[in-house]
């Protein structure tokens, strides 16, 4: 099963495979099918975006991968394990839509929180490592700031540094730049690509910004709503490293138009 899926997505060994997954929620007005018949293989070390209208189950899919919710039918396998087992052994990195920082902790303490919780790094090393991570996301000098003293973009950088603090092989991102202005968003896109290229990781990135998805990804998964399902899996073979300027190029704009067509086609 997983071999066949891996073949489909270009011969890479899948980091995550989702097979026949459906998800039904109970709601006051009866059961709601959030996801239906999802089959998806996410290859290792690739940057995969999931796009689609709101209500197509993108965020639910992300939460299924890391075991925050369980599928009604079907199976999710991460590196050959169930999400729960993977979560216990290695842990996912997760970046939420809002930075979700603890207001009573400084930037440095927020970054160090997972290490403190998991007791994996010696206390003396934690601060040092948190400092390095803040430097990595270009926030040196802001170690002692509380979240409310940082801008939206800076807060999201802290949360990315926090997700990287325990060096996860899989990083799940749920519309992480959705609340940022366009300028900051593009800046963050650059940062993210840089971070991803510095150290290989599998990134699953949920967004509803198509240009962002196209610019960042190796693979774009297009989802359709009611019920949430996969409409298309599109390989983005734009060469890397990509420069910000390619967003203005004719090829990029043509791809964007085609992607828009796939989404709006109903």
């Amino acid at each position: 099963m997983s071999a066949a899926l891996a073949q489909e997505s270009g011969g890479h060994l899948p980091a995550i495979s989702i097979a026949g997954v459906s998800m039904v929620f109970d709601s006051p007005s009866g059961p709601v099918t959030a996801l239906k018949g999802i089959d998806l293989a996410i290859p290792k070390n690739r940057f995969v975006s999931i796009v689609g209208r709101s209500g197509c189950g993108k965020s639910t899919l992300l939460r299924l991968i890391c075991g925050l919710v369980r599928p009604t039918v079907g199976q999710v396998t991460v590196d050959g394990m169930t999400p729960d087992l993977y979560q216990r052994d290695r842990r996912f990195g997760f970046v939420f839509q809002e930075a979700t920082l603890l207001p009573w902790r400084t930037a440095l303490e927020n970054v160090a929180l997972p290490m403190k919780i998991q007791k994996v790094v010696q206390p003396a090393r934690r601060e040092e490592r948190a400092r390095e991570l803040l430097k990595l996301v270009r926030l040196q000098g802001f170690e002692g700031h509380y979240p409310s003293q940082l801008s939206g973009g800076m807060r999201q950088r802290v949360s990315i540094a926090r997700a990287l603090s325990y060096d996860p092989e899989i990083l799940l991102m749920d519309e992480p730049f959705g609340a940022l202005d366009e300028f900051t968003r593009q800046e963050m896109n650059e940062e993210l690509v840089r971070l991803w290229q510095e150290q290989n990781r599998t990134i699953v990135f949920v967004t509803h910004n198509l240009a962002e998805a196209l610019y960042l990804s190796d693979i774009v998964v297009v989802m359709a709503p009611h019920p949430g399902r996969v409409r298309a899996v599109i390989e983005v073979d734009l060469p890397r490293p990509r420069r910000a300027a390619i967003r203005q190029g004719g090829d990029f704009i043509a791809r964007l138009a085609r992607l828009e067509e796939v989404i709006s086609h109903d």
């Binding site: 842990r91 997760f94 939420f96 979700t100 997972p114 998991q118």
Partner: peptide, 14 residues
């Protein structure tokens, strides 16, 4: 406490 904070704590293994 916001629901996302609980999700965060679960993801980081608290």
């Amino acid at each position: 406490v916001n629901r996302q904070v609980f999700e965060l704590m679960r993801v980081i293994g608290a």
